[in-house]
Design a protein around this nucleic acid. Structure first.
Lengths: 261, 261
DNA sequence: GTTGATGGTTCATTATTTGAACCGTTGGTT
DNA sequence: AACCAACGGTTCAAATAATGAACCATCAAC
């Protein structure tokens, strides 16, 4: 791995639970030498990608990421374009809608919207990293990814997150075949035991799957009619978002979705 | 300069006008060897910081910047926290309010808000890079920066952007001393000839200047009473934002602002 | 005052980065 | 159809930058 990769990997040290980290701990967490970390961080700091704060001189993500994100959004209005649709989806279903994008080998939630309809709802956070095998969004994407990429993503052991999590690769493959035949993925209690969700893939120009759109519901509230509403609304919203992104839903998928409704 | 710095500098190639760039042109623009660029870009691509698209295999900023920005915002709610205040400021003044942050040696606009009050207004864009010497935001920050940092930022030749731009370093220093004595900066036609603006510094916890808050007005509309309204509203808004950021306006500045009103 | 943790620095050793020249492909021109 | 120029991408000896054990200064706890 090159030096740049090591530097960029340091950025993944920062999470919501651990927003700022000291030099020694970064070295510990990354497995790199303290001097190396220091040099990499200093170099990233000079470009504003990280910054150092407080008396403890801890590091955290810097303001440059805001500028880059703003630039990316004006060039490729992914989040901003999808946001209103996401809010409409939350309103129409009365549940939590969320949008995730593939980022290398990670599946990252980049936007979500709540509905005010119920006091209990599935809560989400921006920049959450979702497990591929245990979420409907992950399964929806996996199912429509080219086989080699799919296999690469499920090559690692599949952790058991709840009692319902599928951890057997072959049974997961069978599950993904069903998803592919159906056009949408559903999971119940596989990621968090009291949440259930339904997701469909999202396509960029060129018919590549780049993300997934999902609706998450507390298991206690799921019922056949809500289920039907969600299936209808999520496919409509996915079509809309795909169009806003300048892509088009592949004809095969449209056919599947029409059968779903 | 280290390898990481070179890689990160490549990110600055991407601008709003030039959102996606091919390999050869990146090499040309950066002055680096094509093979070097390729390796750096590939490494950044593997981390999602850039992505490659289309038949021409051009590069652009990748989805990882969205995740990092979301993470930064949850850790340090800079933009999200300031946004409502910015909108209120635009409404109260009837003009365009904008917020810029210092990022190394750059001054970057990270948020703005328009007022619906008038058909003509000063337009802005996210991620715009502002010249230090020719904008009120730049001057407001420079004036309250420690001397060594100020001098470093005005060490380069000061380009003449309009007929009114101050290009003489010594006269700029005198101008900044006035700003420091006044507590706010004003420019008229120094950046764009038909825009006039007023800005005040913003402070992070620790009394460091980290940005500026400004209001921009078409020159044709500026009048003494609007001027007074803007001075009042912008200082109120700046106090609010500084508080939201967990900092406090230094007592000296508060005194200056009270005299302004 | 000792201990152990922190952030940061040094510099000989080592491994990575570098770039001229190369390949294969594409798209336009003669 | 032959040619050319520009593209993205690759190669490998030479040049350069990264590395890390040991170091320093500082701080807080005991």
């Amino acid at each position: 791995m090159g030096t740049v990769g090591k530097a960029l990997d340091l950025l993944d040290i920062f999470t919501r639970q651990r927003a700022q980290v000291g030099l020694s701990e970064i070295a510990r967490l990354s497995g790199l030498n303290k001097a190396t970390c220091h040099r990499l961080l200093t170099e990233m700091e000079s470009r504003g990608l990280v910054e150092q704060i407080g008396a403890a001189r801890e590091y955290r993500l810097g303001p440059a990421v805001l500028r880059l994100a703003a630039l990316r959004e004006t060039a490729v209005p992914t989040r901003d374009a999808a946001m209103p649709v996401l809010q409409a989806l939350a309103r129409a279903t009365g549940e939590t809608a969320h949008l995730s994008l593939r980022e290398g080998d990670k599946l990252v939630t980049i936007a979500f919207a709540y509905s005010p309809a119920h006091a209990t709802k599935v809560m989400m956070e921006d920049a959450d990293i979702l497990p591929w095998h245990a979420t409907s969004s992950g399964q929806a994407m996996l199912a429509f990814l080219p086989e080699d990429q799919r296999e690469a993503l499920i090559a690692h052991p599949l952790p058991r997150l709840t009692a319902a999590t599928e951890t057997d690769p072959d049974r997961l493959r069978a599950r993904l075949a069903e998803v592919r035949a159906l056009g949408c993925a559903e999971t119940a209690g596989t990621f968090e035991s009291d949440a259930q969700s339904l997701a469909v893939p999202l396509f960029a120009p060129g018919d590549q799957v780049v993300g997934a759109l999902g609706v998450a519901v507390p298991v206690s509230r799921m019922a056949p009619d809500l289920h039907a509403v969600i299936r209808r609304e999520v496919t409509v919203a996915a079509t809309e978002i795909t169009t806003l992104w300048g892509g088009q839903v592949p004809p095969g998928i449209i056919a599947l979705w029409q059968r779903l409704i």
